[in-house]
Design a binder for these strands. Structure first.
Lengths: 160, 160
DNA sequence: TATTGTTATACTCTATAACTATA
DNA sequence: TATAGTTATAGAGTATAACAATA
């Protein structure tokens, strides 16, 4: 398989250039971009971004949380969280409520509308994920999933 | 393992929230971001971005190519390619040369300096990739790699 | 008419620095 | 002094629209 990569590629299609097929960065970034765009497009009718859906999911599963708490789970910066929550609150999918325990902090609650939007979004995203994963068998996806989780857990616990 | 996700997580660490651990988008985007940032940081002394390194690799492996040809391989837009090549040409890592066969097109050549920079960059990136992949065994990475390639080939060939 | 490259512009996702109000 | 949230600003990576030169 040492075929030389040439700009005169007969079929003109070269989804994975051999010179980059060993690069974890290339493969992961390209795959991430494809699924992100597929989900993003499917969510457009709801006016929801993939990140926003993720945040709603965290709230639905974990219950109300401070912005800082959501930052830790979602692994994004405080300032990014402000913008995410701003957008969701404008559309009344979540509400901010000052915490009585710590008056610096906002507790973020999912609204009924947020819950309904999330359930629609989840179905749409699920469908896209199935399409994205369609070249893999069920066990293959499970292996991929476990390997990704292993990577994230390792790099989440250490500033390696 | 149906432990409820709570904002009062005892250890305070939650690299992969259960509510998102089934999401291909979440897992891939997070993993992609980690490796991208690791490589990006390692390449900083060379003043090279991961994308730029990728482009140099394509040129080193495939020989001179038009900008349009590089777009196809790298899977990015024409206008993005202009900016990428602009940056690399400024630092004399590549040169543009009008194609004699098609005078609309530029052939992009890797310069000797580009080749030298690429070889330094490759070593640095390789080291980071090893750190990134360290929680996986060699065969595990190979499986991950093959699954990612399968996904990219499928979605590269079809506008699914 | 279609394609290659270019420019101007803008969008998404994300962060840094400096601020306010609590703790 | 440290932390939660906020604001203004900026950066990386990428794209769309309109255009010139050439095919």
């Amino acid at each position: 398989m040492a075929r030389h990569e040439s700009e005169t590629n007969p079929d003109g299609i070269e989804p994975v250039p051999a010179s980059l097929s060993d690069s974890a960065g290339f493969l992961l970034n390209r795959a991430a971009r494809i699924i992100r765009e597929m989900v993003s497009e499917a969510l457009q009718p709801l006016g929801l971004s993939p990140q926003e859906m993720g945040l709603l999911k965290l709230l639905a599963a974990g219950g109300p949380s401070t912005q800082q708490g959501l930052c830790t789970k979602h692994n994004i910066d405080r300032t990014t969280m402000v913008q995410l929550v701003d957008g969701l609150e404008e559309r009344q999918l979540v509400i901010r409520q000052p915490s009585s325990a710590d008056r610096r902090a906002n507790l973020i609650f999912l609204t009924p509308r947020g819950r309904k939007t999330l359930s629609k979004a989840s179905r749409l995203a699920q469908k896209q994920q199935q399409r994205f994963l369609s070249p893999l068998s069920e066990p293959e996806w499970e292996v991929l999933r476990q390997h990704l989780i292993k990577l994230l857990e390792y790099h989440g616990r250490n500033e390696v």
